[in-house]
């Protein structure tokens, strides 16, 4: 949600939302304005017993969250389990939600924790970032001049992109998927993954560079 949207919601929303916005402004929290909106209002209403509010919220986030988890876990059954676990935690802790962060960031933070718990339970060794990433990033061509958005992607390139995302280390993939699927901002990704904004940015930068390299190899990168 953009700042303007949030401001509009705060101005024209019903009383509970205005109360949330006032409280957020009083707390002077940096990311608060983004969290004050429909989602925050809906989860607050659900905590007060309004099931319709939850259904609306669920409808809004179900598909992106499902895709995020599916790409992270790469297993249909595990995705269903973790998806349900995430929403179970959201439901159980709805009363603890505070508009200090946008609902989306809170949701993906819970989902991220559920993923980590799942990996821990299943004994899977996480594919972590390595220091060699720095060297790999330096070796990649400068990708800022022109981006994939400026090229029409064919199905082959999309497949290559999906494959490259699957090959990313867990942290980088999580950061990229939160951006791509969840629509989270950099600060929100930092909050959701429990790291500083610079770390989150660094992960996104690595991920973008690797994806660009993979696309270049597939014939869709710069100069192709």
């Amino acid at each position: 949600m953009s700042g303007t949207d949030a401001a509009e919601v705060a101005l024209f929303a019903p009383a509970p939302t205005r109360a949330v916005a006032r409280r957020a402004r009083t707390l002077m929290l940096p990311t608060v304005e983004q969290g004050v909106g429909d989602d925050a209002n809906l989860i607050c209403r659900y905590a007060d017993g309004d099931v319709a509010a939850f259904e609306q919220l669920y409808e809004r986030h179900r598909a992106p969250l499902w895709r995020f988890l599916k790409r992270q876990l790469r297993d249909e059954a595990a995705t269903a389990d973790v998806f349900q676990e995430t929403w179970t935690r959201v439901i159980a802790h709805a009363d603890r939600y505070r508009p200090t962060a946008p609902f989306g960031a809170w949701l993906y933070r819970i989902a991220h924790h559920c993923c980590v718990d799942h990996w821990r339970r299943s004994g899977r060794t996480r594919h972590r970032e390595v220091a060699a990433d720095d060297a790999a990033l330096d070796a990649l061509p400068d990708t800022h001049a022109t981006g994939p958005a400026e090229h029409a992607m064919n199905s082959q390139a999309i497949e290559a992109l999906h494959a490259a995302v699957a090959q990313l280390p867990d942290e980088q993939r999580a950061a990229f998927l939160m951006y791509a699927e969840g629509g989270l901002s950099l600060a929100e990704i930092a909050y959701a993954t429990g790291v500083g904004p610079e770390t989150a940015k660094s992960r996104l930068r690595y991920a973008a560079a690797k994806l660009r390299a993979a696309m270049s190899a597939a014939g869709q990168g710069d100069g192709t």
């Binding site: 598909a63 800022h144 992109l161």
Partner: peptide
């Protein structure tokens, strides 16, 4: 970085039917 990520995301979000 944002521009590049937007481009990648645009290409990545190609399967809207993927839902629970």
């Amino acid at each position: 970085l944002t521009r590049e990520l937007d481009g990648l995301s645009h290409g990545y979000r190609g399967r809207p039917g993927d839902a629970p």
